[in-house]
């Protein structure tokens, strides 16, 4: 497998009539984590969405392994796992079914056993068979996060992943992120919580200054 290298060059994004940021450049290598800081409305979410390819940037380019991520969309998407403010869970389906759907869509072959193991790891063993709508906010978030264990994506883009999680779950998520980075993965995340994200190499990016 290729090494994985994300480069952002002279990126500028606009929301409505407002220029959020311009001339933003950085690069992220395998085994590194990027922590994006900034006050509300400074464009953190937009930046993450632009990198994921959900928002079209005004100017600049985003390169994955040297080619534009927009041009090689399928190849880039295979390496990408994006978790935003919305969990993307179907309320009528059970946690198990939800994860199965994502796995099928991403083309990964995943056994029932693995799905159950992932849910158990996030402390959801007892609600495998319950529809997601009866779960609490934190439990829903955990179901969504269980995807991290199931897909072998290289680049994780996590927008406020610690929201609604209790202390134990925060610890667990940090653990999962650390393992990912240690195995040569890449993580881009934002958070307002005072969570000490300490892994191999942490880069910081401050928006809205």
């Amino acid at each position: 497998m290729e090494n994985g290298l994300l480069e952002v060059r002279a990126l500028a994004c606009v929301r409505g009539d407002r220029q959020l940021f311009s001339d933003l450049s950085f690069s992220l290598q395998a085994g590194a984590l990027l922590h994006v800081h900034g006050p509300n409305g400074s464009g953190k979410t937009t930046l993450l969405r632009a990198i994921a390819g959900l928002v079209l940037q005004e100017r600049g380019e985003i390169l994955w392994n040297g080619t534009s991520s927009g041009k090689e969309k399928d190849a880039f998407n295979r390496e990408l796992l994006y978790l935003g403010h919305h969990y993307g869970l179907k309320l009528e389906l059970t946690g198990y079914e939800n994860l199965k759907v994502f796995a099928n869509l991403s083309g990964a072959e995943i056994s029932e056993h693995e799905v159950e193991a992932a849910l158990r790891r996030f402390g959801l063993a007892h609600c495998v068979e319950l529809p997601v709508k009866v779960l609490s906010q934190g439990q829903k978030r955990r179901v969504a996060l269980a995807r991290l264990l199931l897909q072998s994506s290289k680049l994780w883009i996590l927008d406020e992943p610690f929201v609604a999680l209790d202390a134990a779950a925060v610890e667990l998520l940090l653990e999962v992120i650390k393992t990912h980075v240690a195995n040569g993965g890449m993580v881009i995340l934002t958070t307002h919580q005072a969570v000490a994200v300490e892994v191999g190499s942490v880069q910081h990016l401050h928006l809205g200054q």
Partner: peptide
């Protein structure tokens, strides 16, 4: 519910 975002990011 955000599923659409995820569908846009699927490698298909």
């Amino acid at each position: 519910d955000g599923t659409l975002e995820q569908l846009l990011l699927v490698p298909q």
